[in-house]
């Protein structure tokens, strides 16, 4: 490969090499790398250690949310005044609260609430946001204009404040939280999908497909869906921690799920009264698990975004 000194190499070359090279020997072996897009994405995702950590944590947290409450003899609501505020020990692994309820069981019960709200919010956001944004972007023109004005007004409202207001009106509870989160939560997704659709509608390869006689259906299926699904999945993944935070926030304000149902927010709220008394486990465990859950979804969502958008990878 290195440049040899001209004289030496020229004289070393055997004379019989000065014959025409057969055509077939002129071909270079072509290394074809036929990895599909999704295989590529998965490869990048699993190469990202932080994202994999996030995924593993999500799986573990989900498993524990399902089985955790059954691992002890306590239920999330069984009280035992005699055992109030006991430090973590062999019966109360994470200690107990002032009513003698088991913090371990309640933490995993809270995980159910948080994960359920996160998933429900993400799904509803998906359905409303994709429909609204898709219609707006695809139809364009006047329809788009009107629909986007509405979104603009809603976008101009402070999100969590509106949720608080809705909760005040609708009253606390698991399902009202989901409704309140859904009423405002889809806006970001709608804007995202509309933007993607508009961009793709005018993309040259879509135009090319149209020129070649591709039907609307085919264009949506072959071009729009595969190209928009990445950002949509990322947005959904990152909605989950936002929703989990919102639930905890509302529960902390007393607007969330109601006693005796446990959620990380209500547990933290209960701990506020004993914060300077040394019952550290009352705050520590719900605080730790809500942070861990948000961490897991955030890093997984970030990893997913980086994997889907190779351009942004630095």
């Amino acid at each position: 490969m290195e440049d040899r000194s001209p004289k030496k190499s020229a004289s070393n070359v055997p004379d019989e090499w000065f014959v025409p090279l057969p055509k077939e020997e002129q071909q270079e072996t072509i290394h074809h790398k036929g990895d599909s897009y999704w295989k590529d994405v998965m490869g990048r995702l699993f190469a990202n250690k932080l994202a994999v950590t996030g995924l593993i944590l999500i799986i573990l947290l989900t498993i524990m949310a399902i089985i955790g409450p059954f691992l002890t003899e306590h239920t999330y609501r069984s009280q035992s005044i005699l055992n109030s505020n006991t430090a973590p020990n062999s019966t109360y692994w994470f200690g107990s609260d002032e009513l003698g309820r088991d913090v371990f069981t309640r933490v995993w019960y809270g995980a159910r609430v948080s994960l359920f709200i996160g998933l429900a919010a993400a799904l509803i956001e998906f359905v409303i946001g994709v429909t609204y944004g898709g219609v707006s972007g695809y139809r364009g023109g006047k329809v788009d204009n009107v629909m986007m004005r509405i979104v603009d007004v809603l976008y101009g409202l402070p999100y969590l404040l509106v949720v608080v207001l809705l909760m005040v009106v609708m009253g606390p509870g698991l399902f009202t939280i989901i409704i309140a989160l859904s009423i405002t939560g889809w806006i970001g997704m709608a804007r995202l999908v509309r933007g993607q659709v508009l961009q793709l509608k005018n993309a040259e390869y879509v135009l090319a497909s149209r020129v070649l006689g591709g039907s609307n259906n085919r264009i949506i299926r072959k071009h729009l869906l595969p190209n928009t699904s990445g950002p949509i999945i990322v947005s959904m993944t990152l909605t989950i921690p936002t929703a989990i935070f919102a639930e905890a926030f509302l529960s902390f304000l007393g607007l969330g799920v109601q006693a005796p149902v446990a959620s990380w927010g209500t547990m933290a709220n209960d701990a506020l009264g004993v914060i300077q008394t040394g019952y550290w486990w009352r705050l520590f465990f719900p605080a730790f698990f809500i942070s861990l859950t948000m961490f897991a979804f955030n890093v997984f969502g970030d990893g997913l975004r980086d994997a889907l958008d190779p351009k942004m990878r630095k």
């Binding site: 701990a271 506020l272 300077q276 705050l283 605080a287 961490f295 970030d302």
Partner: peptide, 22 residues
């Protein structure tokens, strides 16, 4: 940064009281 995003502000506030200002 990812920790800052992951720990809700009210949790941080309470942890600060429990572990720092006390």
């Amino acid at each position: 940064a990812i920790i800052g995003i992951s720990i809700p502000n009210f949790i941080q506030a309470m942890l600060f009281i429990q572990y720092i200002s006390s």
